[in-house]
Design a protein around this nucleic acid. Structure first.
Lengths: 208, 208
DNA sequence: AAAATATCCCCCATTTCGGGGGATAGCTTT
DNA sequence: AAAGCTATCCCCCGAAATGGGGGATATTTT
């Protein structure tokens, strides 16, 4: 009947680890079942801990947090992992998210934010600090000043999805020669002369 | 010298609009310079308002918020737009973010969250409510149980970026025939027999 | 020992690609 | 009214890529 959220901490800094433990233990529906100074120390016991939420540091002796992520996910598919780190580079954020992290908090996060995040991810949700949200949102933004027309963008998008010109022609109900014309114009506008260059340039400049 | 944040509200519900206006006006560094019941009513005056942040509803009479987004971005490239809506479908969220929204809040957000969000986006940051964060994070997660090996994933990824087999062979320092072998295996595993099908299937199942 | 993986080889017909040269109709901007 | 852009369609060409078939070998993993 008590909806207890079982938490495991993996954080090499003793002071921080104790701080988090104390912070989270004070929340009624939370129980910190274990805390470890590294993944290598944690891995043998993680399964018995069967935590709902794992707070995971990236920087650690031995296997680091990002390397540990897929192993933890495989061992405990139903646990939700929050990355808790000082780093907020786009590369690390995206890697963590694609690897299945349910949250990404930087260590300047307030106590309230951390507690909220644990609650949120324990129900399968997502949580991120504002600087991470900033990174993630920028990764979505398309360039609104694309030199490509709607039609050209549509066609380049399909090319980027592996479609051939004849497939595109069929699906858009236009002639293959029309597609070819558009592609020629795309190449001129992007100053490229092959499919892969066009895709690369367009993605870099966020035209598609 | 006062770092006043100029805010414009575009929200058709009178009660809500007044509520937000009152909420935000009470914050010292905020000033709500205008509020409108629709984009169509707002557009002639938006330029003079030169707001730092615009809170924008989606559902509105006339031009809706998502349709208005690119026009506002073009007219006021330096303004930051927060979508504030009851809807949180992935399609709407992604459309808003790709169109350049700096934030996406659902209307169940607390007053504190809304105020935080305005502060955050006014500095070019990102803000989203937890349910939106959930959607966004899920969109990043790769399938960790891909049938494809590392090498196969690497190759399919390059194919999805428009590279030909010979280009891939060169960059990976392997023979074109080796690439061909991998591709054959990829096709068998994904049960497809063409590039575009492979990309489509792999993207759907989040193998790449 | 068996299976999976990564590497390489040959044959073949078909399709696609990119470069070149156009045209036409419609719509917008100047 | 002229110029420009857009979307549509047409022809020529040779080179490259594709997908299907048949293998082999060495290393790792199970």
């Amino acid at each position: 009947m008590s909806k207890n959220i079982r938490i495991v901490l993996i954080e090499d800094d003793d002071i921080l680890r104790m701080g988090y433990e104390s912070l989270l233990s004070d929340v009624e529906e939370f129980s910190v079942v274990s805390s470890y100074a590294s993944y290598d120390l944690a891995k043998k016991q993680l399964e018995q801990d069967h935590p709902d939420v794992i707070l995971l540091d990236i920087q650690m002796p031995g296997t680091n947090g990002l390397q540990a992520l897929p192993f933890i996910k495989k061992m405990l598919p139903n646990s939700n992992i929050i990355i808790l780190t000082v780093f907020d580079s786009p590369e690390l954020v995206f890697e963590a998210l694609t690897m299945g992290a349910g949250g990404y908090l930087t260590k300047n996060s307030s106590s309230a934010k951390i507690i909220d995040a644990v609650r949120e991810v324990s129900t399968g949700g997502g949580a991120m600090s504002t600087n991470v949200a900033r990174i993630v949102m920028h990764s979505f933004q398309k360039n609104l000043n694309s030199p490509l027309t709607k039609r050209e963008t549509e066609i380049l998008d399909r090319i980027a999805n592996g479609q051939t010109k004849s497939q595109i022609a069929n699906e858009l109900f236009i002639d293959q020669e029309t597609v070819r014309s558009h592609v020629k114009n795309i190449y001129i506008k992007l100053d490229v002369n092959s499919k892969s260059e066009a895709i690369k340039t367009a993605k870099e400049k966020r035209f598609i």
